[in-house]
């Protein structure tokens, strides 16, 4: 299922997302209270290692930030970190995930090239593949297409629709049209609070776009 969070800039969408994977702990002046349940587990007060909790959630940022290594290792990184060393197996996994994001045919002959040589759109798909490679249940995406050209954006959206069968996907966006295209469920945030929520078909039928345009202006 794809849940889309929309709202004007500065309303707290990104901060909310960063609470889910506990990235918010990196900011010294941030304080979190309350509880966040994922599969009936309170992840803020879990005994589990924070690295393990984060691994269950793939992260896609506004702009792609490929790791400073080659294309192959960008995908293999998470696997290697978690101790998988078998080369043949690693190669298979890398190929598998690069195929899922539709990048394999484009990069299979240049896996040893630095990831920074790819186009921005390709880099964003690479970042998606690297997130998927550690086998998360959830994908968190923070305006994943805002830095991309229309064609690359379309590819990413298409990938999300394909992936929603197997993953819980949460996307932050302020692009209403995009929300309408891909959302199953919508959360509207305004000034740090959820002001409206419901299934996409319902909300868009009752004039969500007009209401949002009012908030945006």
């Amino acid at each position: 299922m794809i849940t889309v969070i929309i709202g004007p800039s500065g309303c707290g969408k990104t901060s909310f997302l960063k609470c889910l994977n506990r990235m918010v702990e990196l900011y010294e002046d941030a304080k979190i209270t309350g509880k966040i349940f994922i599969n009936n587990e309170d992840i803020l007060h879990s005994n589990d290692d924070v690295a393990n909790i984060r691994k269950k959630m793939g992260l896609l940022a506004q702009r792609p930030y490929p790791l400073p290594m080659n294309i192959y290792n960008n995908v293999a990184y998470g696997l290697k970190i978690s101790g998988r060393k078998n080369k043949a197996m690693l190669y298979k996994r890398v190929e598998h995930y690069l195929r899922i994001v539709g990048l394999w045919e484009e990069v299979k002959d240049r896996l040893k090239e630095p990831a920074s040589r790819l186009s921005i759109g390709q880099q964003q798909r690479l970042c998606l593949a690297r997130g998927l490679a550690v086998d998360p249940n959830i994908i968190l995406a923070d305006e994943p297409t805002s830095a991309l050209d229309p064609l690359s954006s379309q590819i990413i959206e298409q990938k999300f629709i394909e992936l929603k069968k197997n993953y819980t996907i949460i996307i932050v966006t302020h692009n209403l049209q995009q929300a309408k295209r891909i959302a199953d469920y919508v959360l509207v945030m305004n000034q740090g609070e959820i002001s409206e929520e419901g299934t996409a078909s319902e909300l868009f039928k009752t004039g969500l776009i007009q209401r949002m345009e009012k908030i945006f202006t």
Binding site: N21, M23, L26, A51, N52, R54, K55, M57, G58, L59, A61, Y65, L67, Y77, G78, I81, S82, C127, R130, G131, A133, V134
Partner: peptide, 9 residues
């Protein structure tokens, strides 16, 4: 940093 941490590092 966040990207690496999110991959379980």
């Amino acid at each position: 940093t966040e990207a690496s941490l999110s991959l379980g590092a």
